[in-house]
């Protein structure tokens, strides 16, 4: 039976990890599928997983009582979904919903948090990689806030 190891070893987000670190991650990984419209995360719920998207499209949404769900970003193939599992209180800050049939690798965050506590090198690697993702999202958010296409 083919494991997820070869795929995860080549994924840009995980590339370069030590073999034993990769084995830990593979042990926490499962393949998951989401139908169109299916919620992957819900704001306020416990952040027990994060995801590496194989294919499909996912919207990150904030629900507002007056305007309903507002899409703040879409992510797709190769992207990483969710970093709230790393930061207390480990709760999602937004909703994520599949808007195309989506396949992803789910990583058990509770398991990984425990492993990161045991192996600080692994924890540091995760923090470095997620900081990069968070920085990209922050930069994109700042550009969105600038409203560069608006009339000024």
């Amino acid at each position: 039976m083919q494991t997820l190891e070869p795929y995860l070893a080549e994924h840009p987000f995980l590339k370069g990890l030590e073999p034993h670190q990769l084995k830990i991650i593979v042990g926490c990984a499962t393949n998951v599928q989401f139908d169109v419209g299916q919620y992957i995360l819900r704001e306020g719920e416990e952040a027990n997983n994060f995801y590496i998207i194989n294919f499909g499209k996912v919207t990150l949404e904030i629900f507002t009582p007056d305007r309903g769900p507002i899409t703040i970003q879409t992510i797709g193939e190769g992207d990483v979904l969710g970093w709230s599992w790393l930061i207390p209180p480990y709760q999602w800050h937004y909703d994520a919903r599949a808007i195309e049939p989506t396949s992803a690798i789910a990583l058990d965050a509770k398991c990984l948090r425990a492993k990161c506590e045991e192996d600080h090198d692994l924890g540091y690697e995760f923090l470095k990689r997620f900081t990069h993702v968070i920085t990209q999202r922050l930069e994109a958010t700042r550009l969105q806030l600038l409203d560069v296409y608006g009339v000024h």
């Binding site: 309903g68 899409t71 703040i72 879409t74 797709g76 808007i99 994109a140 550009l143 409203d147 296409y149």
Partner: peptide, 14 residues
């Protein structure tokens, strides 16, 4: 698009 609501099924972001 920078922001969208409703029926938009395309990409959102910069």
């Amino acid at each position: 698009v920078d922001s969208a609501s409703g029926n938009w099924r395309g990409n959102v972001g910069v």
